[in-house]
Simulated scan of single mutants.
Amino acid sequence: MRILLGLVWSGIASVLLALPTLAADWPVRVGVSVSSVENPYFVALTRGAQEKIKQFNPAAKMMVRSSDYSVETQIKQINELLEQKIDLLIIAASHEHRFAAVLEKAKKQGVIVIGVDVRADGASQTVLTNNLQAGQLVCDYLARSINGKGRVLIQTGPQVSSVLDRVAGCKAAWAHYPGIQLLSDKENGDGSVWGGHTAMQNALSAYGPVDAVFTINDRQALGTMQALQKGGFSQTKIGSVDGSQAVVKAIAAGSQIIVSASQSPESMGQKGVELGVALHAGGKSDPELVLLNTTLVTKDNAATFKAWDASRPNQ
């Protein structure tokens, strides 16, 4: 009996000792599908994911695809990643409701699917910024900066869930100020500096001077500021979402951009990988949405605020 018990405990010990090795071998092949690597935000998010993947498996292979916000291109790229036998897919979807079929296909092949930055039907879990909160905080700050009254604009962007939530949050904040006149929420800055510049020029032509503008990301805020300066509208105040290094510096310098709700793309990428590893180890996809809160960057804290930086080299 003692010999038998000894053999049993020996077998259990062998299994327990093997577990770390097994865990360290996963993930092996990771697909990362984002909307645009032209956007520094997604560069930082991808870097965060890569660094976390290497912590779990230094030999892991990561394949990154960028779709330039094209649903059709992104679906095609995901199918190509599935052909490469990936075991983990990190996806920042270019549309909330059009990826269910391909993501279900991935899960049937045993791939763990984690959404990042935006919601996507079919993802097992998703980690994203609390974008509703971000829009509310920024637009409340803007409203108070103009004493609760004035002509304002919302500059939208790609119609993904993060943008829609930020716009909804902004509107909810401004609804508390009867003196706020929302002129438009239709101008689309496409998430880029040039797009923000063009959208602001169009809005100025249509509506004339405005007191405040909410842009859905920092890149659009920078383009919007350029258009306002070019048009001679130096008093218009701008609020945004990202907390990028360029905008934090602009806020600290006293520019027309006076507030931005910070995001942490690197942390988001890292958290996405952690969620995937946990599911692989038998964890549950609860909660389905993991929300990361934001911090307002203003003139009061911009000089000391640690902004994310897409140009930082990999660790």
Score class of each variant (00 low, 15 high):
Ala261Asp: 05
Ser234Ala: 10
Gly232Lys: 00
Val138Arg: 00
Leu296Lys: 04
His197Lys: 13
Ala13Cys: 08
His197Pro: 03
Glu80Gln: 14
Lys61Arg: 15
Leu279Asp: 10
Leu182Cys: 07
Leu279Phe: 06
Ser14Thr: 06
Phe42Ser: 00
Asn314Gln: 07
Gln74Val: 10
Leu128Phe: 08
Val247Gly: 14
Glu187Phe: 15
Gln55Asn: 06
Asn39Gln: 02
Ser94Trp: 02
Gly6Thr: 15
Glu83Met: 08
Ala175Ile: 07
Ala173Met: 08
Pro313Met: 11
Asp121Pro: 00
Ile78Met: 03
Ser162Phe: 09
Arg2Leu: 07
Gln159Gly: 08
His280Lys: 06
Ser262Asp: 10
Glu187Tyr: 15
Lys284Met: 10
Asn301Gln: 05
Leu137Tyr: 11
Ala175Tyr: 09
His280Val: 03
Val213Gln: 02
Ala49Glu: 08
Gln55His: 05
Phe99His: 06
Ala307Pro: 05
Ser240Asp: 04
Val277Asp: 05
Leu142Phe: 11
Ala173Arg: 11
Cys170Gln: 00
Asp117Thr: 07
Ala281Tyr: 08
Ser10Lys: 07
Ser267Met: 12
Val28Glu: 14
Ile180Lys: 13
Ser264Thr: 10
Ala206Pro: 03
Ile114Arg: 06
Asn202Ser: 09
Ala92Leu: 02
Ser205Asn: 14
Gly135Tyr: 13
Gln181Gly: 03
Ser67Pro: 01
Ser262Asn: 13
Asp286Cys: 01
